[in-house]
Design a protein around this nucleic acid. Structure first.
Lengths: 177, 177
DNA sequence: ACCTGAACACCGTTCAAGT
DNA sequence: ACCTGAACACCGTTCAAGT
């Protein structure tokens, strides 16, 4: 792995570590991925990571952010597709990261930074869903509760065994006026 | 703490350890509660716990079971109350244990025993909810999807900041025919 | 500024040895 | 059958020391 020389490389190196961590977190899970493992995959010593990130939770927040940004970019390219198709795409993407979803919920109270990220993430998602329901013509003052139900249901689908057929029925139930 | 003498005490001692673990898991969380901590609270050495339980996950399953059984007993004493009141009681009880809910979801794939418990738990809860929706007169073949949405929404309420007002609106949305 | 070896204070779990 | 001290193989993190 390319050695670091000067300040210009700092952001680049950070990104390298984040990418490695993302792969490992998604494949093996957060707890199962040790700092040594991430470091080894980057050709550095375990404690070197602490020069780039405060702790493991800050690294997690960065991984989550990178993942969210890249997925959001793709999502907004689907503007022409139907709501149902876009929603099932979102669920598919989240399913890939479902281990991390559970980890975030389990570690919320241990890390203020993670808690903040979680709040912001929900804020963004809820804004998008609010807009979708508005476009569908749902009664404006019933939208907030409907949005919460939709968000929580999506999370539930991620963390529980649900057949394709069940998932389709559930999505239909969420977006019927 | 009372020393153990013969086989008759085994179940009793197991219960003692489970009770201690339950208190600590609920107050401090699963990860934050070490085996040493549980052992110390029971006046025994850390490794002694392994004579009563295979590992920490088996202890967790027993804690969850005990909690579920005691809560279920109370629930069925509320038969005369309305559905909304009973549901909000269930949510309150689950909120007390919300840390464990997140832990269960995060550890599902690490422990087959925990996974099995989780499946059984959902089976029980879904049966109860199915019955409730049936009594409300919901269209029979729309019930399964509605049950899933209700279960996932309840879990969402547990793990996210939701105001009393929002919660009331959400519950109303779930049980409107 | 960047990186490391060594150490610290923990984990959950195993095992040989005690009663 | 029940319990323990000591050890094992890990953690995440800190720190003094190197370049």
């Amino acid at each position: 792995m390319a050695r670091n020389k000067r300040q210009q490389d700092r952001e680049e190196k950070r990104k390298e570590i984040i990418t490695t961590a993302r792969t490992l977190f998604l494949n093996e899970g957060y707890d199962a991925t040790s700092m040594s493992r991430i470091a080894a995959a980057n050709g550095i010593a375990a404690n070197t990571i602490y020069w780039y990130f405060k702790d493991k939770d800050e690294l997690l927040v960065n991984v989550l952010n990178e993942q969210m940004i890249s997925r959001a970019a793709e999502y907004f390219l689907m503007k022409d597709k139907g709501i149902v198709e876009r929603l099932s795409w979102v669920i598919d993407q989240l399913k890939i990261a479902y281990q991390l979803v559970a980890t975030v919920h389990a570690r919320l109270h241990l890390s203020p930074e993670l808690n903040l990220w979680h709040e912001r993430f929900h804020h963004i998602v809820e804004n998008v869903l609010h807009e979708e329901l508005k476009l569908l013509g749902v009664d404006e003052n019933k939208i907030p509760a409907r949005v919460k139900v939709a968000v929580f249901t999506i999370e539930g689908i991620l963390s529980h065994p649900v057949t394709e057929h069940e998932q389709a029925e559930i999505c239909q139930a969420l977006f019927s006026v």
